[in-house]
Amino acid sequence: MATAPASSTDQPLAAPRGFPVWGTLLAVAVALIVIFSLAPVLWQLLTSLKTNPDIAANVYVPKQLTLVHYRNLFARRPFVDYLFNSTLVSAISTLLCLGLGAPAAYALARLRLPGEQIVLVVLLIVTLFPYILVFLGLLEIVQALGLANHYLALIIPYTAINLPLTILVMRSFFQQLPKDLEDAARVDGYNPLQMLTQIVLPMTLPALVTTGILTFIAAWNEFIFALTFMTDPTRQTIPVAASQLGGTSVFEIPYGPSAAATVLGTLPLVLLVLFCQRQIVQGLTAGAVKG
């Protein structure tokens, strides 16, 4: 990726013409960004493929690659369960979040709603809340309803904590729709609900995907609720399960399996970023900048 720009002289931070240092500097910067972003992940990937002796000897690039850590992981732990749990909980809460958030976002974007400004300010503030502030209250709810180790114990909180951002992002997308279209639909006789389901949502499908990706990532990565509400090992999600791998036996070095677990838990998100980079950037900026 360390490609110098063909010509940078007409660009914002460009130095005067005939100043090759600038191109070199940029190439170095690009190289540093790539190393900075990828090195820790690649290191973990390499570790997961090394034999234990290579790990212990700190061999950087191993001559011999092995899948033994992955095999161990699946053999000794219900790792398929973890993947399943994470996928299920993230997917369902994402759908719920969109299902509840999109209508609310539409009402906030386009319908007359008394107290709309207050709702918006509250939503903005709530997106800033660290989860630790609500974890105690949610723990009580989970206990009172006997939801511990039930998927709902994660699905409900994940939907709730991701709703504010979903609403803000979707609202900013709805506001970008041409207003004439909805006026035309009203004249045609669409009621607000038909308008939402037959006109607005089909038109904002890309926005739904964008928002859904953000929600999915947040749900997949969540830690504190998963750690607290799911104590049954077969119900754990990947981040929690992986973080608790440490030392299946006293004599075994857990680095290999731990690295393998990291790679497996990270892989779906790496793929998501690879294919949906544009949507992620769009969603993040829509939520933060325009919200």
Binding site: S37, P239, A259, T262
Partner: peptide
């Protein structure tokens, strides 16, 4: 943007 998207708990392990 890759680091942002990855699970913090797993990154902490790394």
């Amino acid at each position: 943007i890759l680091p942002w998207a990855l699970p913090t708990a797993l990154i902490a392990l790394a």
